[in-house]
Write a protein that binds this DNA or RNA. Structure first.
Lengths: 334, 334
DNA sequence: CTGTTAGCGCATTCAT
DNA sequence: ATGAATGCGCTAACAG
């Protein structure tokens, strides 16, 4: 281990001078700077980041909690977080929770032990254990996409209510009146907002919605397959199905076609997220584009403000969506 | 900041006893243990991880370098890494390099500054800057999927040669003899191995391969679209196209269909990786399944051995593939 | 501008 | 079994 002492001896200066040369070169003479830099090179010295951090009390790391890594939508958000973090000299500790609270607890506790300075949660749950809950009151935490249940942490999310309203209007304008919904995770604000948005439009338009047309319960492709099978099996199948993410829509699309239905001829299918492959489905998916990358960036910016103890000008950011109309939605079968 | 000193005063013992109680409870009387634990609770004390690490000289973190986050195949590998790491008490610093060497350099240097104990590289490049190169000689590093160019680091990869041979045999058995290839990243061992595998079979079977039938150059969907357009535009289009990952295959599939060709009727298309959506394409994709999760796990295990300075029994692991036959490949058009 | 000194929070000798 | 003392590697306050 080549440490600052060795370098100072090699350069014939004090350790403080070495430290200064590296952190604030302006404070030392050019002559000593050269001496020190030469010694640094010669010794192959790199400052021990752990020691620096223990002094300053800051880890310059954040934890990102994500329910799973295989959802490209999450990854796009993390890409934004990571990019923003890197620009500000922070690094990202990845916490794949698999939705398990025990894993959430373990990762969340890293903020309590100075291993990380803050936390971004992509799920809707409060990630700390009951034991840690009170300690966690004041720690910097932000949620993105979701909002943390029953807690007052800042969040960045899509205008899910408006987005699902737009989707409903889009489909109604095509003449649809029998709707099916394949939802994702049920216990979440997203679920409530999207459902409320759809229902509000249907209500305004005087269209009835039968709750048995609401199926699903997770954001997986298989949920789409299963949901499609259930909906198609009804005596009066829907003519339009709103899926709560693109994976579900991909599964549903596949299953409807397998059952001999045409999309959008017999049935329209829409998604959420606009993941890359959705444009290459057959037919290409009508979906809601979320500015995932930007949401990730914003989440980090807000978190950084909390870490720096700067006041937040606003505690919630609702980002705009874009309805991407492709060929999986079309006129209702007459 | 509530530190060990405060707890020791609260419990009426020395800081050493507090430390022992937490790390090796066996060395302490039950009575004092109770006292200490009570004080810990009361003070809401959590050991400062930074301080612990600076003492032990170990960060219990590793850096994972990944060219991009949106490729579900990479994410599956990282899932494996993360899982294995978490089981051993390690955490994962995510380094999204976007293929840029500057970013690789920055992340790689974390291992030199004690911010991380080791490094897993998912790309093929040597991630250290020229400056850091000699310091990096002895650091624990492993590559997975790829192997690091011109360096002797351990790697975990697929038997790409055999896999592409299997693919070639599969297609030849369907009567194909005009092949197209849409490759991914060119400067890589994967490229060389897969290409060599295919060519070896064609050679054995006495089938000529025209190098103009080799297109592509990156692992993106758009590469598949573009490659398909090029291949379909030839006077003698191929009847079978081997794509070097599923994203490329998805793009190619889409484009061939858009051009009015049927798959596999007019043209067979195959991929690599077996990402989840590939089974839900229309038609479902014939592809090579890679044990991505397991590869990630193995990569971490090997890295941990290097970190622990244990001798490696082997320096390379070639994992087996599975040819997943679906409906995107079929008999050659006669 | 540079050196001396004193910690950061913790773990680990070495005594007792 | 416990406490006192030392040091991990570095930075910052204070002198000079």
């Amino acid at each position: 281990m080549t440490n600052i002492k060795k370098v100072s001896e090699l350069a014939g200066v004090s350790t403080a001078t070495v430290s200064r040369t590296l952190k604030s070169p302006g404070l030392v003479t050019e002559k000593t700077r050269d001496k020190v830099m030469k010694a640094v090179k010669e010794a192959g010295y790199r400052p021990n980041w752990l020691a620096t951090s223990v002094k300053t009390g800051k880890s310059n790391s954040i934890v990102v909690l994500v329910p799973n890594l295989v959802n490209p939508f999450f990854m796009r958000i993390i890409e934004g977080i990571e990019q923003a973090a890197q620009e500000r000299g922070y690094s990202v500790l990845l916490g794949d929770t698999q939705g398990k609270s025990q894993r959430e607890n373990e990762y969340a506790s890293m903020v309590l032990t100075n291993r990380a300075d803050g936390l971004i949660q992509l799920d809707h749950s409060f990630p700390f254990s009951d034991n840690d809950a009170e300690l966690a009151e004041t720690i910097p935490m932000v949620s993105v996409c979701e909002r943390i249940a029953n807690r007052k942490y800042p969040f960045i999310e899509l205008d899910n209510y408006a987005a699902s309203r737009a989707l409903a209007h889009h489909l109604i304008s095509y003449g649809h009146s029998r709707f099916g919904i394949i939802a994702g995770q049920i216990e979440s604000q997203i679920y409530r907002d999207r459902l409320a948005g759809i229902k509000s439009v249907l209500h305004e338009e005087g269209i009835a919605f039968d709750d048995s047309m609401l199926v699903g319960g997770s954001y997986r492709i298989e949920t789409g397959v299963e949901g499609a099978r259930q909906l198609a099996g009804r005596e009066q199948p829907p003519t339009a199905v709103i899926c709560f993410n693109d994976d579900i829509a991909i599964g549903a699309l596949h299953e409807f076609k397998r059952l001999g239905l045409t999309v959008p001829g017999d049935i329209s299918v829409t998604g959420f997220d606009n993941v890359r492959v959705s444009a290459y489905m057959d037919p290409p998916l009508t979906t809601i584009d979320q500015p995932a990358y930007e949401m990730g960036r914003r989440a980090f910016e807000v978190l950084l403000q909390m870490i720096s103890r700067q006041p937040l000008n606003r505690t919630r950011e609702i980002l705009p969506f874009t309805l991407v109309e492709r060929q999986s939605s079309g006129p209702a079968k007459s």
